[in-house]
Write a protein that binds this DNA or RNA. Sequence first.
DNA 1: GCTCTTCTTGACGTTTACGTCAACGTAAAT
DNA 2: ATTTACGTTGACGTAAACGTCAAGAAGAGC
Lengths: 141, 141
Amino acid sequence: MSAALLSKISPADAASFTIADLAREFDVTARTIRFYESEGLLSPEREGQNRIYSKRDRARLGWILRGKRVGFSLAEIRELLDIYKSGGPAKQRVALVGKCRERVDALKRQRMDIDDTIADLQAFLHAVEEMPDLKEKAANA
Amino acid sequence: MSAALLSKISPADAASFTIADLAREFDVTARTIRFYESEGLLSPEREGQNRIYSKRDRARLGWILRGKRVGFSLAEIRELLDIYKSGGPAKQRVALVGKCRERVDALKRQRMDIDDTIADLQAFLHAVEEMPDLKEKAANA
DNA sequence: GCTCTTCTTGACGTTTACGTCAACGTAAAT
DNA sequence: ATTTACGTTGACGTAAACGTCAAGAAGAGC
C-alpha cells in the first residue's frame, strides 16, 4: 500500500510510465497525450490495450510541449521530429537540413520580437513607477 | 495618374492610411484588421463609412501583430493594450503592473525555451554535417 | 462477486482566429 | 452612364487543438 502511494509519485527516472504519470509530470491531460499520438507525434508500446511510455517517449513529449511553448504548431513539431529520426537518402536529408535552418532563423527572429516586447513592457513599467501617486504609495508603505 | 500610382505606395510616414495600406504594409488581409477592430483592439476614425487609420492606429496594429508573433492571444494583447492606456485609479494600476510583470517573466521563460530549441536544432545540424555521405556530397560539390 | 480506479476507444462540442462569399455604397475613370 | 476599384456589413465556413461525455475493458482491494 505504501508501494502504491509511491507508485503515484512515479519517480522521474523510472524506466516506463503510464499516461497518467506523464500527464501529471507535464501538466497536460491524458486526452492531450492521446491526441498527440493520434496525430503521429508519439507511438508508445502497448501492454495489452494500455499505453506504456518509455524514457524516450517521455523525452519526446517534453520536446513536443516545449515546441508548443515556442509557438510551433503540431504539424511543425511533427516535421521536426521526423527530421530528427530521418535516416533517408542523403538528398532528402539535405532538404530537411534546409527546413531545419529556416526554423532556427525563424526562432531567432522570434527571439528579437520577444526582446523588443520585453523592452516595451519594461519601459512602461518604469514609466508607471515614476508616476507621482504611485511614488507616494510606495513611500507610505 | 502617376499620382495614383504613388498613392498605391502609400509612404510609411503619411499622416493617415486606408485599410488596404495597412494590409499591404503588415501583410495581413483587410478582413483581419476589421476583425481586430471588432474585438476591440483598434478603433480608427471614419470618413463617411470608410475607416481611416492614424499613425497611432498603425503603430498599434504593429504592436498587435508583434504580440501575435510572440504567441499572445488576441485577448492577452487587448489586456496589454488596455494596460497601456490605463489612467484609472492607482490601486487598479498596481494590479495592472503586476500583470505586466507576469507577462515579462513569461516572455523571459519563453526566450529560454527558444534558446534551448535553437541549441537542439543546431546540435542536430552539426551532427548531420558530420555524417559521411553528406561530407562526400560536399566534397564533390 | 462487487466495487473502485484507471485505462481504453469513439463521437461530438468548443474556442480562437480568421477565410469566404454575398450584397451593397461610393467615387474615380472612361 | 457605366464600368472599375475599393470600401462596407453581415452571415456562414473552417482548421487547429483540444475538452467532454458515453460506454466499456481490466486489474486491485474488500
